[in-house]
Simulated assay, not measured.
Amino acid sequence: MPRAPVYEIDPAAFHADPYPDLARMRAEAPICHVPQLGATLFTRRDDIFAQEKRVEVFSSHQPDGLMSLLMGENMMRKDGAAHADERKATFPAFSPRTVRDHWKAQFEAACAAILDALAPQGGCELVRDFAMPVSGAALRVITGLTQLSPAEIDAASQAMIDGIANYAGLAEVEARCRAATATLDAAVDQARDLDPLSLVAVQRAAGLPDQSVKANVKLAISGGQNEPRDAIAGTAWALLTHPDQLELVRGGAASWRDAFEEYARWISPIGMSPRRIARADSVGGVDLEPEGRVFFMFGSGNRDEAVFDAPERFDITRDTAPSLAFGAGPHFCAGAAASRVLIAEVALPMLFERLPGLRLAGEAPFAGWAFRGPLSLPLAWG
């Protein structure tokens, strides 16, 4: 039977910059097995968009996957009714109306306080000093874990992100992840006097079991901290390195939302989503065997030359509707509305408005392929 062609990678080079390898995969072997990752990769946008919806073949239920083993079985690792029930239970915390009417004002207040403290300094490292605390402050209120600081939220998120991408099986990475999940479980146990629209509160009100409440809180923190953090800093960097694009926003020809959506397409903060092959199937002339592992490479699909013109170019005027930045199908990101409001309606406009003369003050190294973003971003203003 035809098996997926094998594509070898250098893991360190792939972590530093996956885009050259992903472009070759799309051109030469769009469905390929990468031994270093122990998975079959889907790299073309339309294949990912179509196949992600076939949950009977590409199952999110992965009891032996790193996320389930380290963080508990959250709604992202469930299919069908089990997934739908938990998604419905969490919806009151994440609905567009809740975000607009309840959370947005709290996002603005936290962001203003952070900027008030930064403004007199004349410079900062944006990831650490702005993007991280803004994202963490938002998650504190949304989850209900207000006893944790933004820095504690960020540290727990990063430890979990590292843990679920630990395909090399490094013991110290797993240990940090397990310590972080234990901290979050304890915080959920201690959570009292909750905002009724917080994630812990709405799940308890819906009658979800304690292990599901905890697993879904950890899911929200693992994805809801790093993605906004990296997208806030990354979009700011993209605009500052493309001043013509920044002028389009300042002049009203484009919006902050346009800039964020294009950045999330161009450098996808969440670059892939894993699936378990639930039954034998064939896609694109490649036979897939049960219990194999598939990675849907969102970061590759978002640079698919068949869908996006000059996809390697940052262009906030392009149509980003085909983007896979928030996934597709039944597992489309539950926190998309909160992310869009926090980044495009609060953090980015307030950053550029309240720090006049904002400019780069050094290099901004990027890293990652499953999760990608700037490691640091030195800025100055005034």
Rank of each mutant, 00 (worst) to 15 (best):
M1T: 14
A4N: 13
V6I: 07
Y19Q: 10
R24L: 14
C32H: 10
I48D: 04
R54I: 00
R54W: 09
G80M: 05
P92G: 13
K104L: 09
K104I: 02
Q106I: 11
A112V: 11
P120R: 02
E125H: 00
D129M: 02
R140N: 03
G144E: 02
L145T: 00
A159G: 06
D162P: 06
C177V: 02
A179D: 13
L184P: 04
D189E: 10
D193G: 12
V202M: 08
A205C: 08
S212G: 11
G224V: 00
G234S: 08
W237M: 08
D244G: 09
R250F: 09
G251T: 11
A254S: 02
W256C: 01
Y263Q: 06
S273L: 14
R275I: 02
A280S: 06
P290V: 05
R293I: 06
G301Q: 04
R303M: 13
A306G: 15
E312P: 07
E312A: 15
G329L: 10
P330D: 03
R340C: 01
P349D: 07
M350D: 10
L351R: 05
E353Q: 14
R354G: 10
R354S: 05
G357Y: 03
L360A: 12
L360C: 11
G368L: 08
W369F: 15
W381K: 00
